Amino acid sequence: MIAVLIAPPGRRDDLRAALAGLVAPTRQEPGCRDYRLFELADEPGTFQMHEAFDDEAALEAHRATPHFRAFEARAHELLGAPLRLVKLTAVA
């Protein structure tokens, strides 16, 4: 899955810091196979979080963690557009 997150004007650094703070604890979660943060080179302030969990239960457990809940509580101030989730199916 890829989460696309866009900062509102003037909040790029705040969103970047909040997202970066999710990476280390999430990578320690059972069932987390990949969790990496990227910023689009040609669209500063637009971030992509590449996420892979073993199954839906691991993803739901991630969403219940204190670090994710803390981010979720601030999302309204950190996001300039609704979060977009892109679900992927591995092909090769």
Rank of each mutant, 00 (worst) to 15 (best):
M1T: 11
M1R: 11
M1V: 12
M1A: 09
I2H: 04
I2G: 08
A3M: 11
L5T: 01
L5K: 07
I6G: 01
A7V: 00
A7M: 13
P8K: 04
P9A: 08
G10D: 13
G10P: 05
R11D: 05
R12P: 12
R12N: 10
D13Q: 15
D13F: 10
D13T: 12
D14K: 02
D14S: 15
D14V: 13
R16N: 14
R16G: 15
A17P: 00
A18Y: 01
A18M: 06
L19H: 01
L22A: 05
V23Q: 04
V23S: 14
V23H: 12
A24I: 05
A24T: 03
P25T: 15
P25S: 11
T26L: 09
T26D: 03
R27K: 14
Q28E: 15
Q28H: 15
Q28W: 15
Q28N: 11
Q28P: 02
E29N: 06
E29G: 11
P30M: 01
P30I: 02
C32M: 06
C32P: 11
C32V: 00
C32E: 00
D34H: 03
D34C: 11
R36G: 04
R36W: 08
R36N: 08
R36E: 03
L37S: 07
L37K: 00
F38R: 11
F38M: 11
F38P: 04
E39G: 07
E39W: 01
E39T: 09
E39K: 11
L40Y: 04
D42P: 12
E43I: 02
E43H: 12
E43R: 15
P44V: 12
G45C: 14
G45Y: 13
G45L: 03
T46C: 09
F47Q: 08
F47W: 06
F47A: 03
Q48G: 14
H50S: 05
E51K: 14
E51A: 14
E51T: 10
A52E: 15
F53N: 07
D54R: 05
D54N: 09
D54W: 15
D54F: 02
D55K: 10
E56W: 01
A57H: 12
A58P: 03
L59R: 14
A61F: 05
A61T: 13
A61V: 06
H62G: 00
H62I: 06
H62M: 09
H62F: 01
A64H: 10
A64Y: 05
H67I: 02
H67N: 03
H67W: 06
F68Q: 06
R69H: 10
R69S: 05
A70H: 11
A70Y: 02
F71Y: 10
F71I: 09
A73Y: 02
A73T: 02
A75S: 01
A75E: 00
H76N: 01
H76Y: 01
E77L: 07
E77W: 00
E77V: 01
L78Q: 04
L78I: 07
G80R: 06
G80H: 00
P82Y: 07
P82A: 15
L83V: 03
L85I: 13
L85S: 15
V86K: 00
V86M: 02
K87D: 14
L88R: 13
L88P: 00
A90H: 10
V91Y: 05
A92M: 05
A92C: 00
